[in-house]
Write a protein that binds this DNA or RNA. Structure first.
Lengths: 387, 387
DNA sequence: TTGGATTTATTCAGTAACCGAAACAAATAG
DNA sequence: CTATTTGTTTCGGTTACTGAATAAATCCAA
């Protein structure tokens, strides 16, 4: 900032967009509140909201009680949830959940796709399932404005191609195109870590935060960054690979070809493997926490080591990117246990004191439909951005 | 990207800005070339360039030779270097270099300020030096459009305040305001790592790169990130603190209060300290490379260890942020020696193979006026952005 | 009960910053 | 000298705003 100069008029890239994001954040707002929040002139707000009302994207809520306030009564506005619906699908897990969400990101229908893994099968099963769901939920097909798909693996989101997925055995599958052609609905594809981050931005804790990193604790560990309010993908769409930061010199072999990656000590898959090798096989990582709690010192050690390594990597992330917030999503059921405590401690012990007050660390369990719901929110964002 | 949809028309935030940045990059361009590069219509290019010509910011260069091409001859445009000048000052080193640059970022005058460290003295010496330089270089004072100051320490660039500088003994010094008030010229202040990055963007290797990280190898180690073409400062202005990533568990005490930070094994200050403790004191880090080259194994070990640690930290940075390019600036005179080799090797050994082809690692020595020149470019950017 | 006072929303005229199409300009090849 | 080629400008129209005046709907106080 120059010392002694007028603040340049903040110019939103579009008043329309500002209105929509504000309503998404706050739920209900009057026109004058919108003007205040966005900095857009009342005149423009009137114009924009009128057009959105006509399109059926907004609804007016006349305030019933005047609440003893004087002046012209407020007319609140909100997004018309039923104006648009989105499909979200998560492929690549053992299950293949699919949901329909409304414009506000609420799940209105849930379905489990049969787990046939060929792209051709996927197209057909999605097509069939969608028809059934729409009939059951009485949603007109024309209201489906987009489909979001999340794939665990390497995804070229720009081209809509799954470059490689170990889980699915896919290589260079143009998933978006395949499904878009079959269903004649716009399709977006992204990897799981980015998808989760988009979900945090749309309906999660990231809604009001400009700079945050989202970290997915699953079979492997992934992350994604929101910076300046938008998802940062990196130069070649490969940002956020926190799971492959080297944390143990000469450690275990990783699927990526190198050794000692964070994934090899803190990924759910690796933890269960280690438990098996130590003689107490577990089916879910949650059981590992339970075993540790019952006095198994090796289990405790594994979890502490995992948490410490995650904490170290996150501490590096904090130093490099100084996010306002780290949003963990626990897909493994660690719960509020040894792992989480070790992680939190390792972060706090390894960041400079001046970050301590300004960096929120938030752990959240991944509720059942989080992945497909987040996938749907990719489509929702794109729809809203396209007018 | 949706599968099957029109690509939305790329909209530069301002044609004026697009023209300026294109000319900054390419030096000389015709109007039609500008239209092609920026995607702005010829009509708009005419209007914008006309207004810039009138303001004296641009100059026309009629092509002397027609080069046998048919058609109307090209009239090239370039920035009028003498239209605007900027002051750049680096405070906090042992020396306090100050330069004047023109609009194109070329240094037109150099001066060494006396190293009195109180803010009050700084203001007075800058004032005096500026007067002399302007007279000597015959630059009218009105052409000085801004002053950029780089301070090694913690800087609140937004408020123009130096929060803390160990070198200077400053705490909460409103440097920008002090100087702006005294000289009546807009002043910007930033820390050294950010300043270097801005310089890379203005006149260095970062000109054409959307996402890059700049790493300063000096008495300590700092970094800064350009993302989406703009400097990313983080939530609380503290991004880029790569020097304080923990790399040696339970390592040496760092000035930041914790132990084993990258700075403690790879910062120039730490390296010279370690050399002294090992019984071969050196005055410059360059000598350490020389000593190592002459067979001192301890020196070799120190440098290799330092390089490896830097490489590890940078590898983490690559995984997290996937920049197109890492731009090292060597202020310590390592040169193309053991340190650099170890760094490069550690990076290559610790990033996933898919980054290898898409991540450029570039080492550059820091030429004499790099810091003040970069500081001036902060002011230049701000001036150009303000129209 | 009637005329402010007050607050919210709309209308209207005006402007900056573009774009597309067409016109215009200046050179050269033939 | 004319057609061709390429670069630049002009012109009319659009979009997305802003500021100021105005309308609308309520409360309050004389």
């Amino acid at each position: 900032m120059p010392a002694g100069e007028r603040s340049p008029k903040q110019h939103f890239r579009s008043a329309r967009n500002a209105v929509i994001t504000s309503l998404l954040r706050s739920g209900e707002l009057s026109r004058s509140e919108l003007s205040g929040i966005t900095g857009v002139s009342p005149a423009a707000i009137t114009e924009v909201t009128q057009s959105l009302l006509q399109q059926g994207l907004l609804a007016e809520i006349p305030s019933l009680s005047t609440n003893g306030r004087r002046g012209r009564p407020i007319v609140n506005l909100r997004l018309q949830a039923s104006h648009a619906y989105f499909v979200g699908i998560s492929v690549g897990e053992s299950a293949m959940p699919m949901v329909i969400t409304n414009l506000c990101g609420e799940v209105v229908a849930h379905h489990n796709l049969p787990t046939r893994k060929s792209p051709g099968h996927l197209v057909k099963t999605v097509q069939k399932a969608l028809q059934e769901i729409l009939r059951a939920a009485r949603i007109p097909r024309s209201r489906i404005r987009g489909i979001g798909i999340t794939i665990s693996g390497i995804v070229d989101a720009n081209e809509g191609i799954c470059r490689y997925s170990a889980d699915l055995g896919w290589r260079d599958v143009p998933a978006a195109q395949l499904i878009a052609k079959a269903l004649r609905i716009p399709v977006w594809v992204d990897n799981d870590a980015n998808t989760i981050a988009v979900g945090e931005k749309f309906f999660g804790k990231g809604r009001d935060i400009e700079h945050f990193s989202s970290i997915m604790l699953g079979r492997t560990i992934g992350s994604a960054h929101y910076m300046h309010g938008k998802l940062y993908r990196g130069h070649s769409d490969s940002a956020g690979e926190i799971g492959h930061i080297a944390v143990v010199p000469g450690g275990l072999q990783c699927r990526c070809g190198r050794k000692g990656c964070l994934d090899t000590v803190a990924g759910g898959l690796a933890l269960r493997n280690a438990a098996k090798l130590s003689g107490f096989p577990v089916r879910k990582t949650r059981e590992l926490e339970e075993v540790a709690l019952h006095g198994n010192t090796e289990a405790t050690r594994l979890l502490q080591n995992a948490g410490t390594c995650v904490g170290l990597a996150v501490a590096a992330l904090v130093h490099l990117n100084n996010p306002q917030c780290i949003l963990f999503r626990d897909f493994e059921g660690f719960g509020d246990g040894i792992f989480r405590t070790a992680t939190r401690q390792a972060i706090e012990n390894n960041i400079m004191s001046r970050y301590l007050g300004s960096t929120q660390i938030i752990f959240n369990d991944a509720e059942r439909d989080l992945l497909p719901r987040s996938a749907a929110s990719i489509a929702a964002f794109e729809y809203l951005n396209s007018l």
